[in-house]
Simulated assay, not measured.
Amino acid sequence: MNEYTMTDIQNRIQSSFNAQGLMQTLGARLLSAQEGEVQIELPFSTALSQQHGYAHAGAITSVVDSACGYAALTLAPAGHEVVTAEFKTNFTRPAIGERFIATGRVETAGKTMTVCRGDVVAISGDSRKVVALMQATIVNVKV
């Protein structure tokens, strides 16, 4: 892939990410966007915690869903946007960390839909633990 195309992908994803009110509300930021893979960072905040003090499953799911959706958008045909049609999230342990990195990766991309997998890693100091796994179906929508 040439540099111009990579820059175009990064700009497309960053522009769309900046337009998402939920990501702004959560305090999330786009870390990287490349063909077939996107990473989003979510800093821990007590405003996003559940009753036991862990990051809430809704916040964790939101960032990994967005990471998967944006990974799919990197491969979507010209003139198309994407929407999530379905996802399944497994939580492997409580979401305890200073920050969380959600990574979405394209497994297979077709003309009308893309299947992605995602994971969320909790980071505290030098510790890195997977706290969630996602499989998502993303649909291309002509705009």
Rank of each mutant, 00 (worst) to 15 (best):
Q14F: 02
V121M: 15
P43Y: 12
Q24R: 13
F17Y: 09
T103P: 06
T25K: 08
R105G: 06
P94K: 08
G58C: 13
G125K: 11
S124Q: 14
C116D: 04
A102C: 04
F100L: 12
F44D: 08
D8P: 01
N18A: 13
E35C: 02
Q50W: 04
L133D: 07
G36E: 02
M6T: 01
M6R: 03
T84R: 06
A102Q: 00
A57N: 14
I60Y: 01
R99C: 05
R105W: 04
E37H: 03
Y4G: 01
A78I: 07
I138W: 09
A57L: 01
G69V: 10
N11S: 06
Q24C: 02
Y4D: 04
K142N: 11
T89W: 00
R99I: 01
L42N: 01
T92M: 14
R93V: 02
T84F: 02
R99S: 14
R12G: 00
I60W: 01
Y54I: 04
E41V: 06
N11A: 07
Q34K: 03
L30K: 09
K142P: 09
A72D: 11
C68H: 07
D126E: 15
G125V: 11
L42G: 02
Q24N: 09
Y54K: 06
I138L: 11
L73F: 14
I60K: 00
I40D: 01
Q20C: 05
M134R: 07
G53Q: 07
T137Q: 10
A55M: 15
K111V: 11
F17G: 08
A102G: 05
